[in-house]
Simulated assay, not measured.
Amino acid sequence: MFKLEYHVISTYKRNPLEKAFRIPNANMTSNYLMHQYWTAVSHKAPAFLYDLYLRLTGRKPRMMKLFNRLHKSMAFFEYFTSRSWEWSSDNMNRLMSQLSPKDKKLFCFDVRQLHWSEYIENYCLGTKKYLLNEDMAGIPAAKRHLRKLRNIQYALNTIVLVIIWRIFIARSQMAQNIWYFVVNLCYKFLSYFRASSTLRH
Rank of each mutant, 00 (worst) to 15 (best):
D51R: 05
L33V: 09
W116T: 06
K3R: 10
T11A: 10
H7N: 15
T39I: 01
L132F: 10
W87C: 05
S196K: 11
M1T: 14
A40D: 15
V183G: 00
H7M: 15
M1I: 14
Q173C: 01
M1S: 12
W38T: 06
I23T: 11
R69N: 10
M174C: 07
V111Q: 07
M28P: 07
V162P: 00
Y187L: 14
R150E: 12
A142Y: 02
L125C: 13
H201T: 04
I9R: 04
T81R: 11
T127N: 13
Y123N: 05
F77L: 10
R150K: 11
S42F: 12
E134R: 06
M174D: 08
F168A: 08
K105E: 12
M64E: 01
I139T: 05
M64C: 01
Y53P: 01
F77S: 12
A75S: 04
I164K: 14
G58P: 02
K188Q: 14
P61T: 00
E5Y: 07
R147Q: 08
T57Q: 02
A47V: 07
L106H: 07
G58I: 01
I139L: 03
N122Y: 03
L95G: 04
Q98N: 05
K3V: 08
L146T: 13
S97N: 14
Y12G: 00
Q153Y: 06
R200W: 15
S10Q: 08
S88H: 01
L156I: 03
L106C: 04
W85V: 04
C124W: 01
K60T: 11
Y53W: 10
Y37C: 13
R147L: 05
T81M: 09
N122C: 03
R150N: 15
R59M: 02
D135I: 02
W38Y: 11
C186N: 02
E78Q: 12
E18N: 15
S89I: 11
K143I: 07
S10G: 01
W165F: 06
L56W: 08
S89K: 05
N122P: 00
N177K: 06
H201W: 03
R62E: 03
K128T: 06
I169H: 02
E118V: 04
N157Y: 13
Q173W: 02
N68V: 00
Y79K: 02
